[in-house]
């Protein structure tokens, strides 16, 4: 937060301050899970905020949290690759090339519309996949408890979840929800 405080004292950036206040803790936790290192997570979060500050707020931004997380994970990969190479190249040559956040739906209403189809999409899933997905992802129940109740091992649980999520994501994308071009490799 030190970096942010410094840079905002020079040039107040209300948007970024709010972003950090609302999502900073969650982001740090998520980065910790992905990086398995608190110091790396903190570094990446700082670098991300610094970069977002430089780039300024995108003109059309519907989901700041998604935008922040995407940017931070991109930054994390850059950070790790740089560490691995131990190169001395300047910090931003590569980073500046990835400012574009995956395009989000044009209107929030459109996202809401697509979500209205979630229920129908879930109905199409095989029952066990649906149970795993709804209870774990949507209702936040415990993974171990759900698996025990359904009588499946945790590996099967993960596979059900993965299939269900991929399916939902594809069906929602067909309705225009979600980052476009994600499937292109």
């Amino acid at each position: 937060m030190g970096t942010l405080a410094r840079m905002t004292s020079q040039e107040p950036d209300e948007f970024l301050v709010r972003l950090v206040r609302e999502h900073g803790a969650a982001l740090l936790k998520h980065l910790g899970t992905v990086l398995r290192s608190l110091s790396d997570a903190e570094d990446v979060a700082q670098e991300t905020y610094a970069k977002l500050h430089r780039l300024g707020r995108p003109k059309t931004l519907l989901d700041p949290r998604a935008w922040l997380f995407t940017a931070a994970i991109r930054m994390a990969a850059t950070h790790l690759k740089r560490e691995r190479r131990r190169s001395m190249e300047p910090l931003d040559t590569e980073a500046e090339q990835v400012p574009d956040i995956a395009p989000l739906p044009e209107a929030h209403g459109m996202a809401q519309d697509a979500m209205r189809h979630l229920e129908a999409i879930l109905r199409e899933l095989p029952p066990q996949q649906r149970a795993v997905y709804v209870r774990y992802r949507i209702l936040g129940e415990s993974r171990k408890e759900i698996a025990a109740q359904l009588g499946i091992v945790l590996n099967t649980f993960d596979q059900h979840l993965c299939k269900a999520e991929a399916r939902c994501r594809q069906r929602l994308a067909a309705r225009g929800l979600g980052p476009q071009g994600g499937e292109t490799s």
Partner: peptide, 8 residues
């Protein structure tokens, strides 16, 4: 991208 989508 997948990370961002999940947040969204």
């Amino acid at each position: 991208v997948e990370t961002g989508w999940r947040q969204q």
